[in-house]
Design a protein around this nucleic acid. Structure first.
Lengths: 197, 197
DNA sequence: CGCGACGTTGATTTGCCTCAACGATTGTGG
DNA sequence: CCACAATCGTTGAGGCAAATCAACGTCGCG
């Protein structure tokens, strides 16, 4: 059991200092959930009442546009947090689907339990504020970089962040994340490999 | 004096409930600052120690890439907050310039004073957390929309958000914000007007 | 085994960029 | 206040990256 929490504890301790009791109080609310490949952590139309931490596997977040096309906005592997912050905070239904691209394991905590943690160990509020802020900064950076980058550069940025992403999600989903078609991604990779090899 | 604070009070009261005393405590730290067209609220290389609220005018936020090209990432008109959150929170120097595109007036509050406000009126901490979260959500939405939109669609989204932006900033800056060249924006507008007229 | 989803490749089109030239507007120094 | 320079927005020609449409082999799954 304890072992299942090693990664999440390390993740938290990157931001705040906590002792065993504080961590134990928090982890007492954690639930381990296995999610099979292609199953969903969150489904569009539902309210996101849980915060999830990926312990093993990989997830993709996507929406559908007016024509029903999937639109991948994010990937998450081990040591990443998943959820829909807006839905979580406002109680509105989410437009996002969060799908396991591999058999995965997440640790989840319910919003109500999280409130108890905030009350008992206020440091955790700081932790989650930092998580949100870091996410914002990362997104801002990605946005300003991508706006003036070629598809190849975006692709290379993605590989740098998730170096084995190719083994975890299909090319189709990577193309969607990059905002290009699968055909284009195929050609781009071919061209890039030629240069190197 | 009081009148200068009407807009900011309304802005805050959209998120939290405050009484006169609480607002007075906060507004006691506010400084009104006039910033002339082309002058900067924040300059790259400086630390952002202030949070700004636009009372009148318009600002653009931009960075420079390796080749020195300006890259507009954001606009802000009356009723918008400006600053560089990352720099503000971490104390790192900012890569951003925040420039008035018109003669403008901002209300500013120093980080240290903001801490005093948080201590005295904790609700304000909640307010600024909401501001950050809303900003994040808006950015996320903009990102996922833009990734699969034509330049024309992005342009129309911008007009919808800031309907008189054309009167406030140059076409060049709008093009930069959209991630296209001024030439392309000119052609796009021409084409769109033709359809309508 | 057979179907459907996936990745690849080809041909063609489209959207935006680059480079260049030009009037109109803005700003500046004499 | 005028004259000149700089900047801005527009327009044209040509090029390139990615989209679209289509065909085909492969792989995973029922």
């Amino acid at each position: 059991m304890q072992n299942n929490f090693a990664l999440i504890r390390k993740n938290i301790e990157k931001q705040i200092v906590i002792n065993d009791d504080e961590f134990r109080f928090f982890s007492g609310f954690l639930l381990e959930k296995k999610i099979s490949k292609r199953d969903l952590f969150l489904k569009e139309g539902e309210v996101c009442n849980y915060t999830g931490f990926v312990n093993r596997g990989c997830f993709r977040t996507f929406t559908r546009d007016d024509e029903g096309n999937e639109n991948v906005t994010r990937f998450a592997i081990e040591d990443y947090w998943i959820g829909d912050l807006y839905s979580y905070l406002t109680g509105d239904v989410s437009p996002y689907n969060i799908e396991a691209t591999l058999d995965s394991t997440v640790l989840i905590i319910h919003k109500n339990d999280m409130e108890k943690v905030y009350e008992q160990v206020p440091k955790f509020e700081r932790f989650f504020r930092i998580i949100v802020q870091r996410g914002y900064i990362a997104l801002e950076k990605r946005f300003s970089i991508d706006l003036n980058s070629s598809a190849l550069q975006k692709y290379e940025n993605l590989l740098q962040k998730f170096n084995d992403i190719e083994l975890r999600v299909s090319q189709k989903h990577i193309a969607s994340y990059l905002g290009i078609t699968p055909e284009s991604l195929s050609r781009i990779k071919k061209k890039a490999y030629k240069k190197e090899g």
